[in-house]
């Protein structure tokens, strides 16, 4: 099931300057911490002039679409999915 969410979240991230890689490692939402095992896609788009970074990440059982608004550096959880049909 795919569920649209719009919730602020806390994250643990690693930035590797040699590879210029930003890697989300842990995600805390509604009091629960999820280990991020895979970062499968990172894309960007503009909302007006504001650049949005979208990370499609997965724990062992869940998918999370998380975005970073570069105008205020706020992270938002936009979507979750367990990969099962509705």
């Amino acid at each position: 099931m795919i569920q649209k969410i719009s919730a602020p979240i806390s994250l643990v991230l690693v930035y590797d300057h040699t590879a210029r890689k930003l890697i989300p490692k842990k995600l805390k939402w509604e009091g629960k911490t999820h280990d991020i095992i895979h970062v499968d896609l990172h894309h960007i788009y503009r909302q007006g002039r504001t650049l949005q970074h979208v990370f499609s990440v997965a724990s062992n059982t869940m998918f999370f679409r998380i975005t970073m608004d570069t105008s205020n550096l706020q992270w938002t959880l936009e979507e979750i999915s367990d990969g099962l049909p509705d």
């Binding site: 896609l41 059982t61 998918f63 679409r65 999915s81 990969g83």
Partner: peptide
């Protein structure tokens, strides 16, 4: 394919 790339839990489905 792009959706399956983004969400690995959709792969092979």
């Amino acid at each position: 394919s792009i959706e399956q790339q983004a969400n690995r839990h959709l792969r092979n489905k």
